[in-house]
């Protein structure tokens, strides 16, 4: 059945966002995709149009800047695209000590991980209410349940997402707009992340999932209106273990994580001969250019 409503996905060009995008297109959803310029969005849109019978609009811009969020909203409104699903996926990871992370990077991370989804939810809420039944999916992380060294700010931004989503869901009860939050564990997104995952310890490797599997589970559960989505049995068991394990054992695990971060886990640091500037996960396109097609 043809639909005239649209799903808006941020951070759509890569990783989990791309998997959510492809999964949504496979389900016949028309799409408005937002991502950084130069991240392959036009190619992705072309691929989706060729393979699935859906309409695809793209917005290339840096959503860490609130003016670009407003520009996205204005364009969507001007074109009268009926958004009935907002997927706030864009986010930035980090894994380092607070003192090693630059303030610019942290600000960017906090902007994109917290302010951007909040602003987009606020801007698009009236549209979502007009196109009910509709939903908002915020992408959190399993990291928000644990207090992990090296992920102090990232984990906190995702804890914000969890709290924000749960509160907003209650606030919107009865409005026809359902809010869900997905908290995935480690995923094989980019080549460099996949490499890190595959060279991690056995225990970590068991929890790693491919983004396309996580996206399938997430989109199914989103349709069911589930509040908190934890994809994967191993990840679910982590949460149970967190509740039942004695505190000293958890401290022991945290201490091991700290040691790995401190010394550089030999299993995960085989790329030491390749300088950082040549590792793909270190690049962040900050171009403020915004283009809509």
């Amino acid at each position: 059945m043809k639909t005239d409503t649209f799903t808006l996905i941020t951070g759509a060009s890569q990783g989990f966002g791309k998997a959510l995008t492809v999964g949504s297109a496979r389900r016949g959803k028309n799409l408005v995709l937002a991502a950084l310029p130069g991240s392959g969005l036009p190619e992705l849109a072309l691929f989706l149009k060729r393979n699935y019978d859906v309409k695809v609009h793209i917005f290339e811009g840096d959503l860490t800047r609130s003016e670009n969020c407003h520009a996205l909203y204005t364009i969507v409104k001007e074109q009268d695209l009926k958004i009935n699903s907002l997927i706030n996926n864009a986010g930035i990871l980090s894994r380092d000590y607070l003192e090693n992370l630059t303030w610019d990077y942290l600000q960017l991370q906090m902007n994109l991980n917290m302010l951007t989804p909040t602003l987009l939810s606020k801007l698009f809420l009236p549209t979502l209410k007009q196109n009910i039944p509709s939903n908002i999916l915020n992408v959190g992380s399993l990291a928000c349940y644990f207090y992990l060294p090296g992920k102090q700010v990232y984990g906190a931004t995702k804890a914000f997402i969890l709290s924000f989503s749960q509160s907003l869901r209650r606030e919107l009860k009865g409005s026809g707009v359902k809010v869900s939050v997905v908290c995935p564990g480690g995923m094989n997104t980019s080549a460099s992340h996949t490499y890190q995952n595959r060279t991690a310890g056995w225990f970590t490797r068991q929890s790693i999932m491919n983004p396309e599997e996580v996206a399938e589970i997430t989109l199914d559960k989103l349709m069911e209106g589930k509040e908190i989505i934890i994809p994967g049995k191993v990840n679910q068991s982590f949460l149970v273990l967190d509740k039942i394990l004695p505190k000293y054992l958890k401290e022991l695990i945290t201490a091991k994580a700290m040691k790995n971060l401190n010394n550089g886990n030999p299993r995960t640091n085989k790329a030491v001969h390749i300088p950082h500037k040549h590792r793909s996960h270190n690049k962040l396109n900050k171009s403020p250019k915004a283009v809509f097609q």
């Binding site: 791309k18 392959g40 190619e43 691929f47 080549a191 491919n210």
Partner: peptide
């Protein structure tokens, strides 16, 4: 009906170490 072409975005995770390391080398 849609063969792989040069501009095609990869939509599945890397299946094995060979694919992954070749992709990393391409990035370099």
């Amino acid at each position: 009906g849609v063969p792989i072409h040069e501009k095609q975005p990869r939509t599945i995770a890397y299946q094995n170490h060979y694919e992954l390391t070749k992709a990393m080398a391409e990035e370099l």
